[in-house]
Amino acid sequence: MSDFFHGEYKVHGGKLVVADLAVDAGRLARVSISGDFFLEPDEALADINAALEGQPSDTPAAALAEAIEAALRPGVVLFGFSAQAVAIAVRRALAQATGWADHQWEVIAPSVLPTYVNVALDEVLTEEVGAGRRNPTLRFWDWEEPSVVIGSFQSVRNELDPDGVARHGITVARRISGGGAMFMEAGNCITYSLYVPQTLVDGLTFADSYLFLDGWVMEALGSIGVEAFYVPLNDIATDQGKIGGAAQKRLGNGGMLHHVTMSYDIDADKMVQVLRIGAEKLSDKGTTSAKKRVDPLRRQTGLGRAEIIEAMAATFTARYGARSSTLTEAELAEAARRVESKFATDEWLNRIP
C-alpha cells in the first residue's frame, strides 16, 4: 500500500483547498479533494477526483487544471476556488510545489550600497536561492546616489531625458527583471527584493503570483492605515493613487526574483525632468499628469521611512517565522565582480539603446 500525501493551498482572497492522495506505479491514486469552498452541484466533486485519478505524478499544474476543467459538466459552479487551486494543492501534496511554511525565511535589513551593487545582488542572491545555497530571503535596499533603475527590456533612449540625467547627476542602471523605470533618491523610496524558489509559485499564473508574493506587504500597509491593492499586472495603489510597482525574473536554476519599489517621498518635479513618461502610458493609467500618478507613502501615513520598513519587516517575520540575516562576504564579492563585468558596462546598460 502506498503512503498517503497531503497538500493544502489557500486561494488569495478565497478558500482553502486540500488534497489527499496516494501514488501507485507513478500515477495518482485514491484522490480526495476537500476544503471550505463552495461547489454546485455536489456531484462535481466526484468528477474532480476522477479527473485526477491515474494522472502521472509529475504532471504539471497547468495540465492537471486542464484535466479538471475538461471533466466538469456545463453549469458547474466553483466558488472560492478553481481548477488551478486544486492542481496547486495536488502539487504541494507531492512536494513538487511548496508553501511559505515549507521554508526557513530570512530578512536582510537595509544597508547603504551603490545602486550597481544593489542590482547585481538581485542576480547573485536569486541564483543562490535557486541553487539551494541560501534560504529564501527578503532584502530591503538602501542607497545614496540619485538613480534610475530601468527594466530589463526598456530602451535607454525612450525612457530617459539625457539633459535631466546630466543636470541632476543621475546614476542609470539596468536590472534583470522587467517592468518600468524607478526614479530613486536617498530616502525617497522603499525598495525590497524577495528571492524565492519557483516551487513557491508553482501552478500560479504570473498575475496571481504578484498578489501571492505581496500578501504580507498588503497586511503590513494595512497595519499602518494604508489600504493597498494591486492594479493588474504589477502596480500597487490605494484609492489616492499609485504607490509602487513590482517586477519579476525567473532563472533557469529554479530561483525567482520578485522586486518592489514604493514611493515614500518622491520629488515629482525632478522625476519628470529625468524620465520620459509618454502620453500613451499616462492614458492607460487614467491620468494626464505624471506627477499625479504617484501618491507617496509619507503623505498617506505621516510616518518616517524607517518606521514603515520596520512595520513591513515585522509583519513578514511574524507571518512566516523569518529570522534576521546578513549579506555574506562571498555574496558581496560576487556582486562587485558582476558590477565590473556586467551591470556597470555600456554593453549591459545600452543593450536596448
Rank of each mutant, 00 (worst) to 15 (best):
T328S: 15
P110S: 08
R338C: 02
G187P: 12
T191E: 13
A71M: 08
I243V: 14
P74N: 12
A71C: 06
G244N: 07
Y192T: 02
R157N: 05
R293H: 11
E280W: 04
D24Y: 08
A62W: 03
P136R: 01
A65R: 11
F212I: 02
L138Q: 06
S325R: 06
V11C: 01
N188H: 14
D235V: 05
F81S: 01
T287M: 04
G13T: 13
V11P: 00
A131S: 14
D163Y: 12
G178F: 03
V196S: 02
D47R: 12
G252L: 11
A318W: 06
H12C: 09
S32L: 11
V172F: 03
W105S: 03
E331Q: 11
G286C: 09
V18A: 03
T205M: 00
V90A: 11
D202Q: 14
P197M: 09
C189K: 14
M256Q: 10
K291E: 15
A93K: 11
I266Y: 12
V86M: 01
G321F: 07
A120F: 08
E331M: 05
A344W: 03
L297I: 14
Y264C: 10
G13C: 10
D122H: 06
E334D: 10
S223P: 05
F229M: 12
D239R: 15
H103S: 06
V23E: 09
L211V: 09
E128K: 09
F4G: 07
L45P: 00
K281N: 11
L332P: 02
T126W: 07
N158T: 01
D20P: 01
S34E: 07
R351F: 05
R175P: 00
Q55S: 13
G225C: 08
L303E: 03
A22G: 13
I176S: 00
G278S: 08
H259M: 08
Q198H: 00
R139H: 08
R337L: 04
K281C: 00
Y195W: 04
A207S: 08
I352R: 08
Q273H: 11
G75T: 02
E123A: 09
L221M: 14
V156W: 04
V156S: 00
N118P: 00
V217R: 07
L194A: 04
R175A: 06
E127Y: 05
Q55I: 07
V148T: 07
F5M: 07
S263H: 12
D265C: 13
L194M: 14
R276E: 02
M312T: 02
A318K: 15
H259W: 12
S324D: 15
D239M: 10
H103F: 09
A314G: 11
K292W: 06
G75A: 05
A237T: 08
A186Q: 15
L221E: 03
W143R: 11
V149I: 14
T315L: 04
